[in-house]
């Protein structure tokens, strides 16, 4: 268990749960609606994050950009506006989810990149169910990694 003073533990957990629902649906819609331009943007973001992985940088901006990119690829502004409105909370959640376990930053970013790849692959394949499952799975892992926050 780690000490968290500035961040509301329960809001963080609720936020990941909410994101599973919202972003799972956004990813499914993206698989149906994505344009070629969307795919180029998403691939670029993943490549940038993979570059950072080797520098040992956390890449929070790139991480958020990927999620926003998936929402944009749904071509539904309601999904985009949720992520933009919750940006500060999402950043805090990402930061704290990554304080978990004994993994080094490099390993954590590698795991995130692999999970983002699965989401992108499903969107490329236009497989809505797989995209939803991959996004939910990714956010579920983030949420589970917050379990050690809980009051023992």
């Amino acid at each position: 268990m780690i000490a968290i003073s500035s961040f509301d533990v329960q809001s963080g957990k609720s936020c990941f749960e909410f994101r599973m629902g919202i972003e799972g649906e956004a990813a499914a819609a993206a698989a149906r609606k994505r344009s070629t331009a969307d795919l180029i943007i998403l691939r670029d973001i993943i490549r940038q994050m993979e570059g950072l992985q080797h520098n040992g940088q956390p890449g929070l901006n790139e991480d958020f950009a990927f999620h926003l990119g998936v929402a944009r690829a749904s071509h539904n502004d309601y999904y985009v506006s949720v992520l933009q409105s919750l940006k500060a909370t999402i950043f805090e959640g990402m930061l704290y989810a990554r304080t978990t376990s004994g993994l080094k930053t490099v390993e954590k970013v590698a795991a995130i990149n692999e999970q983002h790849r699965l989401v992108l692959d499903a969107i490329v394949e236009q497989d809505a169910d797989a995209a939803r499952a991959a996004m939910r799975g990714h956010l579920l892992r983030c949420r589970i990694s917050t379990n050690h926050w809980h009051l023992a």
Binding site: M20, G21, I22, G24, E25, A29, H75, D77, Y78
Partner: peptide, 12 residues
Amino acid sequence: SFLNFREGIEGE
């Protein structure tokens, strides 16, 4: 867009 969004969010 809004009705699609509503279905997703309220279903969850």
